[in-house]
């Protein structure tokens, strides 16, 4: 356990060091830059905002983590997020209930939208054995254009000079207390449910087993094709939920490009977290710290915030490669120590 923490921390530090080198080469002061970055996102007044911003990252990250750990290579989070966002928006445009009913309803709609989109990929696999790896990627592009069409034609806000929908009903807005958005509560609930399913339920055990060795689990009596569909639907619903919350917590309407890079960041988070649910939460928050802080960094030190995008990818590559490397290194040390003990 300690070793795992060490590997992650060392990997992140190495990546930050590389980022510092890049800054040095370009004539920026890396210490000040990092200080501004972390100050902007972690100062007492800011941390609630950073937490709120981590919601879509953690949710799409969990979606990817659960999928990868259970076998399906669901890379459709970007599309599922957009469909979830669209469903929640449509619900919010045409329905108006008291907030206590409205918010859960829109969240369910968002999950339905995401699950619908991942369900398409799941059925294509189930019926025709088409690899979800490529189909989900293609569905991403299709969802991108489809939602763009939806906000351009049927749900277009008249008189807007930018493709966007009107505002959703105010009862569907996630309540906000100063910087703290209640979408964080939804995220924590979702985290609890997913953690429980994956670590404490029979279904989760079967999923992880299938992820490790699909043949073994099938021979052991696990209904792998049923599990496959359930996992796809669940992970789609998670990504859809992320999309719904982006709308309900943020601009309260569907604007072009609202999905941003959340979903791909989520995929990266799942990879760097080695598909662990708790690590996904940790790295999701950490990525949010970097992204939120990048604003402050750009404001004060003139380092373009796009640097963070590079840094994120570097963190993924270094931590994952380092994990493999360290594991063999520690195994070697252990083996040598044992050998010495036996000979002594």
């Amino acid at each position: 356990m300690k070793r795992k923490v060490l590997v992650n921390v060392v990997g992140v530090l190495l990546a930050l060091l590389l980022g510092a080198l890049v800054m040095l080469v370009q004539g920026y002061n890396p210490l000040e830059t990092y200080y501004r970055l972390f100050e902007y996102s972690l100062a007492p007044g800011k941390i609630a905002y950073t937490l709120s911003k981590s919601v879509p990252l953690v949710l799409t990250g969990m979606s990817a983590s659960v999928a990868f750990a259970s076998g399906p290579i669901n890379l459709g989070q970007p599309g599922q997020l957009l469909m979830g966002a669209l469903f929640a928006t449509i619900g919010g445009l045409y329905i108006n209930l008291p907030p206590l009913l409205m918010v859960p309803l829109l969240l369910i709609l968002a999950m339905l939208g995401g699950a619908l989109w991942s369900g398409v990929a799941a059925l294509l696999k189930y019926w025709f054995n088409m690899s979800e790896f490529i189909t989900t990627l293609m569905l991403n592009m299709i969802a991108d254009f489809f939602t763009y069409w939806a906000i351009n034609y049927p749900f277009f806000e008249k008189n807007a000079n930018h493709p966007q929908t009107p505002l959703i009903a105010q009862s569907g807005w996630m309540p906000e207390w100063s910087n703290f958005n209640s979408s964080v509560i939804v995220m924590v609930l979702a985290f609890g449910v997913i953690w429980f399913i994956v670590n404490r339920s029979t279904a989760g055990y079967e999923w992880r087993l299938s992820g490790q060795n699909s043949l073994f689990s099938r021979l052991g009596g696990v209904n792998t094709s049923k599990n496959y569909i359930v996992v796809m639907l669940l992970t789609g619903a998670l990504a859809g939920l992320a999309g719904g919350l982006v709308i309900m917590a943020g601009p309260h309407r569907f604007i072009k490009g609202i999905g941003g890079n959340y979903a791909w960041d989520g995929v990266m988070i799942a990879m760097v977290a080695n598909t662990g649910i708790i690590l996904t939460l940790v790295f999701g928050f950490f990525f949010s710290v970097l992204q939120t802080g990048s604003l402050g960094m750009e404001l004060i030190t003139a380092v373009p915030r796009e640097l963070i995008q590079v840094l994120q990818a570097v963190i993924v590559l270094i931590v994952v490669a380092g994990r493999g490397y360290f594991e063999t290194f520690f195994a070697k040390v252990e083996a040598r120590r044992k050998m010495r003990e036996r000979t002594a």
Partner: peptide, 20 residues
């Protein structure tokens, strides 16, 4: 390292580097 993870990481790295 796993080729799949390397590939995804590299694609996103490329997006980041070119944007930056």
């Amino acid at each position: 390292m796993d080729e799949f993870i390397t590939g995804i990481g590299l694609n996103l790295f490329s997006v980041g580097v070119t944007t930056y």
